[in-house]
Amino acid sequence: MVALSNSWQVGAQKLTERERRNLANDPRNLLAVDGPANQKKSDGDAATWLPPNKDFRCRYVATQVDVKSTYNLWVTQAEKDAINRVLSTCATSEPTPFLGSTGS
């Protein structure tokens, strides 16, 4: 869900080796997808890429927020705006994780 390249850009370089390994193997952060979809996403965040399946976007974004929060990764302002935009369209039964501050 959170691309490893993106995670490095937003704070993973400050994690210990064990924390980085946990992030890379965290089941919440792993999703089986086809090659073309993975290539389109690349290291994109919610501001630059969302799943083409609109019904999955709420869960996808909520999971990204959960993973980034767990590993103390930050988001850019553009990503925070995109996250808030997506989550504002979600049904009330969808989890709406806390989104901390932006940073760089």
Rank of each mutant, 00 (worst) to 15 (best):
Gly35Val: 05
Ala82Val: 03
Ala78His: 11
Pro95Tyr: 04
Thr63His: 09
Arg20Phe: 06
Val67Phe: 13
Gly35Gln: 05
Ala82Arg: 03
Gln9Val: 01
Lys68Thr: 13
Ser69Glu: 13
Ser104Ile: 08
Glu79Tyr: 05
Asn72Thr: 12
Tyr60Gly: 03
Ala82His: 05
Leu73Cys: 04
Lys41Glu: 14
Val86His: 02
Ala82Lys: 04
Trp8Leu: 07
Val10Gly: 03
Gln64His: 10
Asp43His: 12
Val67Ile: 15
Asp34Ser: 01
Ser69Leu: 10
Pro36Gly: 01
Ser93Ala: 09
Ala62Asn: 12
Ser104Pro: 14
Val65Gln: 04
Glu94Lys: 11
Asn6Gln: 08
Leu73His: 01
Thr92Lys: 14
Glu19Thr: 09
Gln39Ala: 13
Asp34Arg: 00
Asp45Pro: 00
Ala78Gln: 11
Ser88Pro: 02
Phe56Leu: 08
Thr48Met: 00
Val33Glu: 12
Arg21Pro: 00
Ile83Val: 10
Val65His: 03
Asn72Gln: 15
Thr92Leu: 03
Gly100Asn: 15
Ile83His: 02
Trp8Arg: 01
Asp66Ile: 02
Asp81Gly: 08
Gly100Lys: 13
Arg85His: 08
Asn25Trp: 00
Arg20Asp: 07
Lys14Glu: 05
Ser93His: 08
Thr63Ala: 06
Thr89Ser: 12
Gly103Glu: 15
Glu79Met: 05
Thr70Lys: 14
Thr76Gln: 00
Glu19Ala: 14
Leu23Met: 07
Leu4Glu: 00
Lys41Trp: 06
Thr70Glu: 15
Lys40Ser: 15
Ala3Ser: 11
Asp81Asn: 15
Ser7Val: 02
Leu15Phe: 05
Arg21Ala: 08
Ala32Arg: 10
Ser101Thr: 15
Gly35Tyr: 04
Phe98Gly: 07
Arg21Cys: 01
Pro36Val: 03
Thr48Gln: 01
Thr16Cys: 10
Phe56Cys: 02
Leu4Pro: 00
Asn29Arg: 00
Ala91Pro: 04
Phe98Ser: 11
Ala12His: 08
Leu31Ile: 10
Leu30Phe: 13
Asn25Ala: 04
Val65Gly: 07
Pro97Leu: 12
Arg20Met: 12
Thr89Trp: 05
Lys40Asn: 14
Gly100Met: 12
Asp81Cys: 07
Asp55Lys: 06
Leu30Thr: 10
Asn25Phe: 02
Met1Asp: 12
Gln13Asp: 04
Lys40Val: 15
Lys14Trp: 07
Gln13Ile: 09
Gly44His: 06
Pro97Gln: 09
Val10Pro: 01
Val86Gln: 07
Phe98Thr: 13
Lys68Trp: 08
Leu31Phe: 14
Asn38Arg: 06
Thr48Val: 02
Ala32Leu: 12
Gly44Phe: 02
